[in-house]
Amino acid sequence: MAAGGDHGSPDSYRSPLASRYASPEMCFVFSDRYKFRTWRQLWLWLAEAEQTLGLPITDEQIQEMKSNLENIDFKMAAEEEKRLRHDVMAHVHTFGHCCPKAAGIIHLGATSCYVGDNTDLIILRNALDLLLPKLARVISRLADFAKERASLPTLGFTHFQPAQLTTVGKRCCLWIQDLCMDLQNLKRVRDDLRFRGVKGTTGTQASFLQLFEGDDHKVEQLDKMVTEKAGFKRAFIITGQTYTRKVDIEVLSVLASLGASVHKICTDIRLLANLKEMEEPFEKQQIGSSAMPYKRNPMRSERCCSLARHLMTLVMDPLQTASVQWFERTLDDSANRRICLAEAFLTADTILNTLQNISEGLVVYPKVIERRIRQELPFMATENIIMAMVKAGGSRQDCHEKIRVLSQQAASVVKQEGGDNDLIERIQVDAYFSPIHSQLDHLLDPSSFTGRASQQVQRFLEEEVYPLLKPYESVMKVKAELCL
């Protein structure tokens, strides 16, 4: 049975990233139509530049190519590739079939990587351009969430054990800070992308030097003109047959890092959902379990974690691919890159769409948070109580021993009897502590235990987050809708 299948058929496997999760716009960027249309555009740009620099290419040939950029006979191309065992030459023939007058000058002087690699770089750039505003929107939604809850005390956790208090907004800023680093890295790697350009079979530009009869300047002009037509500021000066596969490492490393950030955020949300302090959106008709109707599973956060793990592992592909590119190139890269580049971007696209949807509907339960604080705060307040007693004339050592005994009794009630923490009640009825009984409410005010959390939130948002989001103001209103 021949390899390949009808990918629109229910009898043929289709990647869930495309069929179930990723956005239509990201799927289109990695589609065959987008790819092969870009090949034709690159052939047109090459012909236009070659004509401008004096090669015998007519206006009629150029116009014929322009008129057929979208006229792609995919069936013919597939048949040609089956016959020739070469995808680029299959599309040269297919393009030439609908451009008979231009057929002889299509791909003039070029090698397969002229269309293959340059198209990949265009796709990487455009895919990054799709991700950047999506990530900015996630940051914006979380920034709104953090600002609104900047002063809401909550129990902090280290080692997932109760620690000092923080605020809900401050905790959210930990998430935002990681995503801001990801946004900066995505922008950097996007701006650092260079075009492969017009380089020939081993990167020496020998074929173009021959076409222009040894004119170095025209060869350099050709490279520059096509690079500018493709919208790049610069091209690699040095290439082998391909652009260095280190570029793929750079791009997928940034995406993998984004995956790590999203995994951490969504894990926190899942843990908070278990504590009943916070939940992701839950639709009115949504079913959490087929057997347990009360369940409210954090399905979206779980999906993000599941896909983020996949995204983090994909960076190993370009690392290994770059390491086995012998001399000017081997074909070890080809099949692998067809999979890992598309999957990385479709996965990143999915987790950003999902995280935006989550961040637009996060639900906080202040009463649950308050109750958990009441359970733990008495123990945390013991040092403040000791200091207040010393100020009232008591002995630190005597007070410490009193607190120690009462704390152990209260802990026994919590752990052995399943009761509430009654340390404060014990202190309130103990005559030894009568000098500070009137101060206990103040000493137990949760806001006095959150330090500068709310001020940190305000400063972080104003100095770091809002300036970073400013270039994306025009796209901030787009909502994230999930079908599944």
Results as ranks from 00 to 15, higher is better:
P10F: 12
Y13E: 03
Y13G: 07
R20F: 15
A22D: 10
F30K: 10
T38W: 02
W39S: 05
A47K: 12
P56C: 00
Q61I: 00
Q61K: 04
I62A: 04
N71T: 07
D73G: 03
F74T: 01
K75V: 02
E80I: 15
L84Y: 11
H97S: 03
P100Q: 05
A103S: 08
I105F: 13
H107G: 05
D117Q: 03
T119G: 00
L130W: 08
A146V: 12
R149M: 12
A150P: 01
T158G: 03
Q161T: 08
A163G: 07
T167L: 00
R171K: 12
W175G: 03
C180F: 12
D182C: 02
Q184S: 12
D192S: 06
D192L: 00
D192A: 14
R196Q: 11
R196T: 05
V198P: 11
V198W: 03
V198N: 13
V198R: 05
T202L: 03
A206N: 03
F208R: 08
F212N: 04
F212T: 01
V226G: 11
V226I: 03
T227V: 14
A230W: 07
K233C: 10
F236Q: 09
I237L: 03
I249A: 04
E250S: 13
V251D: 11
A260Q: 15
S261Y: 12
L272E: 02
N274T: 09
Y294N: 05
P298T: 06
R303W: 10
H310L: 12
M312I: 13
M312G: 07
V315D: 04
D317N: 03
T321M: 04
T330V: 12
S334I: 00
T347Q: 00
T350W: 06
V363R: 10
E370F: 02
P378R: 10
M380E: 10
A381G: 15
N384E: 05
R396Y: 10
Q397V: 08
S407T: 11
A411R: 07
V413G: 15
D422F: 15
L423E: 10
D430R: 01
A431T: 06
I436P: 09
I436S: 09
Q439P: 04
L444Q: 14
P446R: 14
V457F: 10
E463F: 05
Y466M: 13
L469Y: 06
E473P: 15
S474K: 15
M476D: 09
A480T: 01
E481W: 09
